[in-house]
């Protein structure tokens, strides 16, 4: 039984390699820019890491779209959860041992674990999806960058001494887990089907990423190193733009969009 996806490679739209570069560079630049600007100027710049998180989320969503189009058999959510599970293990390791190189160590570790899981899935479990190795590497890498970026948005730094009491000890890390997983898995899960289009799926990715940034901004009210108002405002602006774009694509792709009107009252039904 296959759930979701047409059983072939995903087609159309922007070249996936460009999205990979956008995701990696965008996320790393966002994380490091936020870190250095917060240190040099002030906590107001913590929102830049949120922009980085959106880049990696869109990349993750695009990778999920490519691999899930083959039909995973278990539904799309499983691969998002795998991405963020791998990313979580790798990013906590990277931040714990890496100090200033934390985000890069997290990313590389996640890619290695992802690659191994991809090889295992094809060679031992026998899933037979040709791009499984590459996609698992990408998805795990995107998951780890998302986690590091959202942690940085919440606390203004990726140094484990600050992350530990502010994000992990308080339990916000569990929230990062689920908002990260949902924003990576949901875009394709919501748009899959014969009429799936890359631009509509990715606009959902931007929109979900913006919601994650808004939530990270709300958490930032509890931490000293990060400012919440700029993060929430930037998140809300991106959300509005992406959602308008998404709705525009819906109207383009749908046969017809009609209003159903208000529900009939009891008297009208009689």
């Amino acid at each position: 039984m296959s759930a979701g996806g047409s059983g072939g490679p995903a087609t159309g739209g922007i070249d996936h390699n460009k999205i990979i570069i956008f995701g990696i560079i965008g996320a790393l630049v966002g994380i490091y820019a936020a870190y250095f600007l917060v240190n040099a100027i002030g906590s107001a710049f913590s929102f830049i890491a949120g922009l980085g998180a959106i880049c990696s989320i869109v990349w993750g969503a695009s990778a999920v779209r490519r691999v899930s189009n083959y039909g995973l058999g278990t539904g799309v959510p499983s691969i998002g959860m795998l991405a963020i599970g791998t990313g979580m293990v790798a990013s906590l390791f990277g931040m714990a041992v890496g100090s200033i190189a934390g985000p890069i160590i997290s990313f590389v570790t996640a890619c290695i674990i992802g690659l191994v899981i991809g090889i295992l899935a094809n060679r031992i479990i026998g899933m037979g999806i040709p791009i499984m190795e590459q996609s698992m590497t990408e998805i795990a890498g995107a998951g780890s960058l998302t986690i590091v970026a959202l942690s940085t948005t919440m606390s203004g730094t990726f140094m484990i001494e600050t992350i530990l009491p502010n994000v992990i000890g308080t339990g916000y890390i569990a929230m990062i887990f689920i908002i990260g997983a949902l924003s990576i898995l949901h875009p394709f899960n919501a748009n899959l089907g014969p009429d799936e289009h890359q631009d509509r799926t990715l606009s959902t990715g931007f929109e979900k990423g913006a919601i994650a940034v808004i939530i990270a901004g709300i958490v930032a009210t509890t931490t000293a190193g990060a400012a919440s108002i700029p993060t929430i405002l930037v998140g809300a602006f991106i959300w509005y733009t992406a959602f308008s774009k998404f709705y525009e694509y819906i109207k383009r792709d749908a046969h017809k969009v009609v209003g159903t009107g208000v529900l009939p009252t009891e008297e009208e039904l009689e």
């Binding site: 499983s78 599970g85 899981i117 530990l164 569990a174």
Partner: peptide, 29 residues
């Protein structure tokens, strides 16, 4: 407190990896 959070989220990560691998093995059902 920090240790409980750290170990907990590590355990959740490892748990999810090991929940997805077998679900691919049985094809979802």
């Amino acid at each position: 407190t920090d240790l409980a959070g750290l170990a907990g989220i590590f355990a959740v990560g490892i748990f999810f990896i090991n929940a997805v691998i077998p679900s691919y093995n049985i094809g979802g059902t």
